[in-house]
């Protein structure tokens, strides 16, 4: 890394580094505070009733954020509602209707491919590992096929790792099968997420990401996205317009938790 040593030395000199000034030892936090521990415990023991309350919060904030929150809360109804959306909405860039979705267990359980009304619609999956048994497709070829499918699709369906209720913030990590572009390039983004993934706010999210052992093991990955509403701009006379570059619409479905 050329220049790194000199660069850092220049900073050290500017900071007056030397004996007695080695920098703060506690600059990186390595143990959770009592408040953070308590918050973690609260997240982990959240009751179904409390989650339902968070659902209510999302219902309220969705409108101002221009998110279409849908009331359906079981997989069959959600699949039906998504089917209707696919039929009702028009593609922005062409006439053919293609839809792309993540390779994700919850989305597979919607069985969109078995909806009779979607006969004329092509359903793609951003599936990195399939591509035919035996015939091993190269990673590059797979990527370019996924890219082509995403570009051709007018609707992208994804899930999310979490949903922070106060700001309706969806949290998505880059993973095999979870294309980043599926939530970005198609004109309409549909999200289906389980009620168990609801958090109260960003503070809860960051506390989890930072201190929860499972989250620590996973890390943020090379790309973690927080998405709060569809794409928007106010760059012409501060007039709010939705659909600047990303999706014009964001539709949200929350799957109700299993009865205990």
């Amino acid at each position: 890394m050329p220049g790194r040593t000199e660069f850092i030395q220049t900073i050290g000199k500017a900071l007056g580094r030397g004996a007695g000034n080695a920098g703060d030892a506690d600059i990186f936090t390595t143990t959770a505070s009592l408040e953070q521990e308590a918050l973690l415990a609260r997240i982990k023991t959240r009751s179904a009733a409390e989650r339902k309350q968070l659902r209510g919060v999302i219902e309220q904030v969705a409108g101002p954020l221009h998110i279409d929150f849908h009331p359906e809360d079981n997989l069959d109804d959600i699949a039906g509602a998504i089917g209707r959306l696919i039929l009702e909405k028009d593609p922005e860039w062409g006439t053919e209707k293609s839809v792309v979705r993540w390779d994700h267990p919850l989305l597979s359980r919607l069985h969109l491919e078995s909806l009779a009304e979607l006969d004329g619609v092509t359903l793609h999956t951003t599936d990195c590992v399939s591509g035919g048994q035996g015939a091993k497709v190269s990673a590059a070829a797979q990527r370019s096929a996924i890219r082509e499918n995403v570009e051709a699709s007018f609707i992208g369906i994804t899930s999310a790792d979490y949903l922070a209720a106060a700001t309706a913030t969806l949290v998505m990590r880059s993973r095999p099968g979870h294309a980043r572009s599926a939530s970005l390039v198609p004109s309409i983004h549909i999200v289906v997420i389980e009620e168990e993934k609801l958090l109260a706010n960003l503070e809860e999210l960051y506390t989890l990401l930072k201190w929860d052992p499972e989250e620590q093991a996973q890390g943020l990955t090379n790309c973690l996205s927080l998405i709060s509403g569809p794409s928007k701009t106010g760059d012409i006379e501060l007039v709010m317009v939705h659909g600047a570059h990303g999706p014009r619409e964001l539709h949200l479905f929350i799957v109700k938790g299993e009865a205990p």
């Binding site: 990195c128 996924i146 095999p176 943020l220 790309c223 996205s225």
Partner: peptide
């Protein structure tokens, strides 16, 4: 309350991920 899109980017796309850049360069400027 929070910008519409906040992305954390830590490197190029992992080999088994479906999309994202193949190379990531960070230029730190004085």
């Amino acid at each position: 309350q929070i910008g519409g899109y906040v992305s954390y980017i830590g490197g190029p796309a992992a080999e088994n991920h479906c999309d994202g850049p193949q190379a990531f360069h960070l230029i730190i400027v004085d």
